[in-house]
Design a binder for these strands. Structure first.
Length: 872
RNA sequence: GGAUCUGUAGCUCAGUUGGUUAGAGCGCACGCUUCACACGCGUGAGGUCGAUGGUUCGAGUCCAUUCAGAUCCA
């Protein structure tokens, strides 16, 4: 209880310590207190120099919670807490990513609804009470209605995350949350898009595009995943005018009717004579030219390949650079065109194509192979190989390449200057750890095109454009109609552009709305803008942008990190943040990445129940940034032990009469610390504070923690054991005052040093003897007790001497508390003075009635020990 | 094929700019219910630092080669 003392400004609190300190129950109690006291609120009345802003990853609220969340979010929180205590006004918002496929699926299944952007918006729509069993019976609703349902449902999901994150002790300012699908986010995303269109950074083009036939959408390079799949080289001949056979080997024989040319390396002697000549394709009888291009690999197959439009992105390159015709046959549904193409002219060829019309890629392949076999054109059996095939990261069918009109954002993939600019941006950011930058550079250097941002999905942030229709009803893609910024957010599928009536939708002379939505990364790339109220409150934005820190996982450097850099570059002409902290992954004890499908996921709440939050945070904070970490329950135990030890050691100190007023804060106070051992402790403490601070400044919270931890264990195991007698008053008042001051100062500093990692235990203790919260306290410096710091070697020497006595007792098989009537301690000359200066403490701690010091030897050693007779 | 990371005690890891005898925790062995803590305390055993070669007075640390594992990119 705090006692008001008349006439003083600083009421001294009598420490109020529970009989049996425990970690249980601290989370609820302290979280409530922090909320009440608004400890983590961002102060908007500030300027940029005081602010430390963090662009936190918005978790997918409809996704599952796993220990990986606790791991990486804790690492960020540790830094946030450090910065807050260091005097920064920390802007630490958190958002929810509820824009995208996972939410789309969840909303569909939960309510039994489907989105069709062409449907009109229904006011006060209520979903079916129970979702219909059959998807065909689901309600079909407008995009706006769908988004409203999403907003309603994700509130529930977000609650679960918020509860976990609160329990984890994240010092987030919960007033600063955002959702990537809410009005403000959609408006910001659309505004950013419009700005990029206006500045020429976004454009629309008709181009070959990677296409997922299951999801029926275009996908971007960043969403690709190469998977090893079995395939087979099929070898069959084209024929020259002279009747000579030219064999090609292909894993995709079904693309033969799409063939537009053959290609070989310009230096390939085998094919040089053929360049410029034409050959005729088997089965379909189409004449194609033999071309030369350096991307053709002489080592691969027969060294000559067929170019089809389009089998893969290399085909696209050849098609573009060799200016070949387009003969596309695979449609957006992944099936071959039902119409026989006009470039197949022979009767036999047209008949053969009939066999493929309407077939899936898989069946078409079988059909082509059958036909080749039937005509005895296949040379030998297909050769089985394993090769990398491109998949959409969420898809399970190989991607096809189809030609379609899409929106792109310039990212350096087609322009060397911009690429160099993005590399330079990467160098403006400080990476933690530094080597992660090469992931970024690798990615930027490997870009092969601009960022495709349109998605043919229903749910997401609509691309905010309309296209005029001319008198004949043709779409004019070159002159898209953009909304005014005041109109945002807008849904072009259900709202008409300015100057048009809804009745003119899809009518000649009218307009049509863009049906596509933006890639979710296009929106999450502007989380700094969304959380920072960009273009809503620009005063505010300027106080937080560019942010100080972007924490995230290394798996999304190519997506989230790069996309954010691209957009800040074009929207703001700067980096989005000056530091990025890349956390590692959680691996299971067998070193496999934890994932739901492997069934090795640990439920966060169970772990928190079992070990307590501080223990889990300790585990997360012990891992360096960027290092993948095994899930080790042993680490939780150590963290738990540390937190409990801190409670108990503090209880002991307060039991010795330590109070707030004993803390050494100035030179006058320093005079109280008279004992060399106590002064040595403070010397060690001073060094510790300096080192730990330096580690934190370098984002190396893990090293900072381990240094604080080992100091603490030496404090309890050696120092506290040595001074117990003195603390009880065994050596008089002055000696007791000295130990109280040293202990109070050390405890005060330790609580602050541990606070970022162990927020619950430290604040619990803080509240026993202080007012307010340790988390609102300043980061410690040695300034206040500097003059009380003596020679740290004393502590080291006395601790070694203590260990020597303990060893002797252990070897003599007597109990540690057994009294020594007399003994000689031999120790190196350099240590004698130090040990002498704390001889009374050493004798008391070892129950030695007489202890003679003698110089000599390499290390302290006890000899000629006489022990008291055993107690009866 | 290109790039990055990792390899240190049975296990998980730390080892700052090269500097005495390589550290911690867990686990293990032995002992101790000592007035903060048995969710504890004390003591001990345990490593030719992946391998080879080099630079250096001196290499776990720097360089080269190599082996093994992981990740990213093509």
């Amino acid at each position: 209880m705090a006692e008001e003392i008349a006439g003083t400004d600083t009421p001294i609190k009598t420490p109020d310590v529970p009989e049996k300190p425990a970690l249980e129950g601290l989370e609820d109690k302290l979280n409530a207190a922090w909320r009440e006291e608004q400890v983590y609120h961002f102060d908007e009345d500030t300027d940029r120099s005081q602010v430390y802003s963090i662009d936190t990853p918005p978790p997918t609220a409809s996704g599952s919670l796993h220990v990986g969340h606790m791991f990486s979010y804790t690492q960020t929180d540790v830094m946030a807490r450090y910065k807050r205590m260091s005097g920064c006004n920390v802007f630490y918002p958190l958002g929810w990513d509820d824009n995208g496929l996972p939410t789309e699926r969840r909303v569909q299944n939960y309510y039994g609804v489907r989105c069709d952007p062409s449907k009109p918006y229904i006011e006060d729509y209520t979903p079916p009470e129970k979702p219909a069993k059959n998807q065909r019976d689901w309600d079909v609703i407008s995009r706006r209605n769908f988004i409203e349902l999403c907003e309603a449902l994700t509130v529930e999901d977000e609650k679960v995350f918020e509860d976990l994150f609160t329990r984890l002790g994240l010092s987030v300012d919960w007033r600063q949350t955002y959702r990537t699908i809410d009005d403000a986010s959609r408006a910001a995303s659309q505004k950013a898009f419009i700005r990029d269109v206006q500045s020429g950074n976004a454009y629309t083009a008709q181009a070959p595009t990677l296409w997922d036939i299951t999801f029926r959408t275009a996908v971007a390079q960043a969403e690709l995943e190469a998977k090893e799949r079995p395939g087979a080289y099929h070898r069959y001949p084209f024929t020259t005018a002279e009747g000579e056979k030219v064999f090609i080997e292909t894993t995709r024989p079904e693309l033969l009717p799409s063939c537009v040319a053959l290609v070989a390396h310009p230096e390939d002697e085998r094919y040089k004579p053929l360049f410029g000549k034409t050959v005729t394709s088997p089965l379909f009888g189409v004449e194609v030219e033999v071309k030369a291009h350096q991307l053709a690999d002489p080592e691969k197959g027969s060294g000559i390949a067929m170019i089809c439009t389009f089998g893969d992105m290399t085909d696209v390159t050849w098609w573009r650079e060799l200016q070949l015709p387009t003969r596309a046959l695979i449609g957006r549904d992944g099936r071959f065109s039902r119409e026989t193409p006009e470039w197949i002219t022979t009767e036999q060829g047209r008949a053969n194509y009939e066999q493929l019309a309407g077939k899936t890629v898989h069946s078409a392949k079988e059909a082509v192979v059958e036909m080749l076999k039937a005509e005895d054109l296949l040379d030998g059996e297909p050769k089985s190989i394993t090769h990398a095939v491109h998949f959409y990261e969420k898809g399970d069918k190989p991607l096809e390449v189809v030609t379609s009109r899409q929106w792109y954002i310039r990212n350096g993939g087609r322009d060397a200057d911009r690429r160099e600019q993005m590399l330079a941006r990467g160098r403006e950011i400080t990476w933690h750890p530094g080597f992660m930058r090469s992931r970024y550079e690798n990615w930027v250097e490997g870009l092969n095109g601009d960022w495709l941002i349109s998605r043919q999905r229903f749910f997401g942030v609509p691309i905010p454009v309309w296209y005029p229709l001319d008198e004949s009803g043709e779409l004019d893609y070159e002159n898209p109609i953009l909304p005014s910024e005041e109109q945002l957010p807008v849904d072009p599928a259900s709202e008409a552009p300015a100057g048009y009536e809804e009745s003119q939708r899809d009518a000649a002379g009218g307009f049509t709305g863009e049906a596509d939505v933006l890639d979710t990364w296009a929106t999450s790339a502007i989380t700094p803008h969304i959380a920072g109220r960009w273009e809503r409150e620009n005063d505010f934005f300027e106080k937080v942008f560019p942010y100080d820190l972007r924490p995230q996982g290394h798996d999304i450097i190519r997506t989230w990190l790069f996309a954010s850099a691209v957009r800040a570059n074009s929207l703001n002409g700067s980096v989005p943040w000056t530091n990025t902290a890349i956390s590692g992954w959680i691996l299971d004890p067998d070193r496999k990445k934890m994932s739901k499908s492997k069934g090795n996921v640990v439920v966060p709440n169970d772990v928190l129940d079992k070990f307590g939050t501080d223990a889990v945070r300790y585990w997360a904070a012990s891992a360096k940034l960027g290092a993948d970490t095994a899930y080790e329950e042993g680490q939780f135990k150590i963290g738990r032990r540390l937190a409990i030890k801190l409670l108990n050691a503090s209880k002991f100190a307060f039991g010795m009469g330590v109070t707030e007023e004993h803390i050494v804060t100035d030179e006058a106070g320093a005079g109280v610390v008279t004992q060399p051992l106590d002064r040595a402790l403070l010397a060690r403490l001073k060094a510790l504070v300096e080192q730990v601070t330096a580690r934190f400044e370098d984002y190396d919270y893990a090293r900072a923690l381990s240094m604080t931890e080992s100091f603490f264990w030496q404090f309890t195991d050696d120092y506290v054991e040595l001074v117990k007698d003195r603390a009880y008053g065994g050596q008089g008042e002055e000696a007791q005052a000295s130990v109280r001051a040293a202990m109070a100062t050390t405890l005060d500093t330790l609580l602050r040093l541990f606070a970022p990692v162990l927020p619950f235990a430290t604040d619990e203790i803080w509240r026993w003897w202080r007012s307010g919260s340790v988390h609102a306290a300043d980061w410690p410096t040695a300034a206040g007790f500097e003059t009380a710091a003596g020679e740290s070697e004393t502590l080291e020497a006395v601790a070694e001497a203590l260990a020597a006595v303990r060893r002797a007792k252990s070897e003599a098989e007597v109990k540690q508390r057994h009294a020594i009537t007399s003994a000689t301690l031999t120790l190196p000359q350099a240590q004698v003075t130090h040990v002498e200066s704390a001889l009374e403490d050493l004798k008391a701690a070892t129950k030695a009635e007489a202890l003679t010091l003698s110089a000599g030897g390499e290390a302290p050693e006890l000899s000629q020990a006489e022990y008291a007779a055993p107690e009866a």
